[in-house]
Amino acid sequence: MSEIKAIPRLSLDRGHADHGWLKTFHTFSFATFQDFGHERYGALRVINEDRVAAHTGFGTHSHREFEIFSYVVEGELEHKDSMGNTEVLKRGDIQLTSAGMGISHSEKAHGDRPVHFLQIWSLPSPSRLPPKYFTRHFSDAEKQDAWVRVVANVDAEGVQKDLREGSKQGEGPAPVQSPLTMYVTLLNQGKSLSQAMKGSKGYVHVVMRSGYNEGAANGATIRVAGQTLREGDGAYLHVPFASDVMIENIGDRVAEVILFDLE
């Protein structure tokens, strides 16, 4: 039986920009960073790890035909959009904007602290959908040494696809119009965790919890499919049919890990 193969995407090799108000890393080609070897993977198009200074942010701008979700790591993120949604998101919150035929929004640091969040885009399967907005909350406690499904395809089991009004409405994963599932864990030292995969591709990313670092990654350390990854690192996963991905924390601190199952 074939084994899962992991191809590292090291933090040191990601695109990087320091705009003063924004410090960002790009896993895939984005803005002025263009790397034809890292354009997308399955439906996954963007993974930006952003740190936005207090009282600044992304002003109102428009998107269409993308699924855009934000995973808040630290601080508070203020969202406003052309559908009338205004919300402040904190650690544990995930926001998903299904841009569909078009939406305008702004994302800014709320309050007197910077915000650290992951901005993730995926490509929807159907086009020309009406725009929608969803938020969910997942506590640190439920992520301890367990995979929590935070985003899943709209037709997947257990997805409440019609609840979107108000703050953190509905339970379970936010519904995405792309063939992907996003899992998150807080994996403690010496612990390991497996996840059954449905797709033939996956992607794993280790969140940079210990701070902004332009150089070689440090902080939390995990092992996946024989590869060692540190904070900011990721890996493309080639997954044989019906295989399990095993993540092991081999470092000296808690690792916040994101896993995408790309169906």
Rank of each mutant, 00 (worst) to 15 (best):
K80P: 04
M197T: 10
V206T: 07
Q119L: 12
M197D: 04
I258N: 11
D233H: 00
E142I: 13
M182V: 14
H19P: 02
K108D: 00
K132M: 10
R223Q: 15
E49L: 02
D145P: 12
Q95Y: 09
R149A: 08
S194G: 12
L89A: 14
D93H: 08
W121E: 03
Q195E: 06
A109D: 02
M1L: 08
M1V: 05
Q95H: 13
V257T: 11
I247C: 08
E157F: 07
G37C: 02
F134E: 03
R9D: 14
S122W: 11
F69W: 12
G219S: 03
Q195M: 12
R9V: 13
W147F: 14
E78G: 13
S243H: 14
G59T: 12
W147C: 02
S82K: 03
V184Y: 11
T27Q: 04
K161C: 01
E74Q: 11
F28T: 02
E87L: 07
Q189Y: 01
V150P: 03
F58K: 07
E107Q: 14
I120A: 02
H205C: 09
E142P: 00
R128I: 01
S210E: 05
G57H: 05
G15H: 05
A6T: 09
A54S: 15
G215D: 11
D35F: 03
S127P: 09
R253Y: 03
Y212G: 00
V46S: 01
S11L: 10
G15L: 05
V115T: 04
L187G: 03
V115H: 06
K198A: 10
S98M: 08
K191N: 12
T32W: 07
E263I: 07
L44I: 11
P124L: 04
G92Q: 04
A99F: 02
V46T: 13
V73F: 06
S178A: 15
A146Q: 12
G190Y: 08
A242N: 13
A146P: 05
G211M: 11
N218S: 14
K168H: 14
Q177T: 00
A6F: 07
Q34N: 09
P179V: 01
V115S: 02
V204A: 11
K191W: 05
A196K: 15
I250T: 13
Q177V: 01
I4V: 15
Y41M: 13
F30P: 05
H79C: 05
F33I: 00
M1F: 10
E76S: 14
K5H: 07
T135Y: 00
H38C: 04
N188C: 05
F33P: 00
E78R: 13
V52E: 00
N188I: 00
R14W: 12
V46C: 04
E87V: 09
S11G: 15
E231V: 11
I68T: 09
S125Y: 08
G20C: 11
K191M: 14
G202T: 11
P8Y: 04
E263G: 09
D261I: 06
I247S: 09
E263P: 01
V151D: 04
R113N: 14
P179K: 12
K143D: 01
W121D: 01
K132A: 13
Q227E: 15
L12N: 09
G215V: 04
H110D: 13
V73C: 04
H38A: 15
G219N: 01
P175S: 12
N188H: 15
D81S: 02
I68Y: 11
G202R: 06
A217K: 05
Q169R: 06
K198I: 04
L10T: 09
I4F: 10
V150E: 06
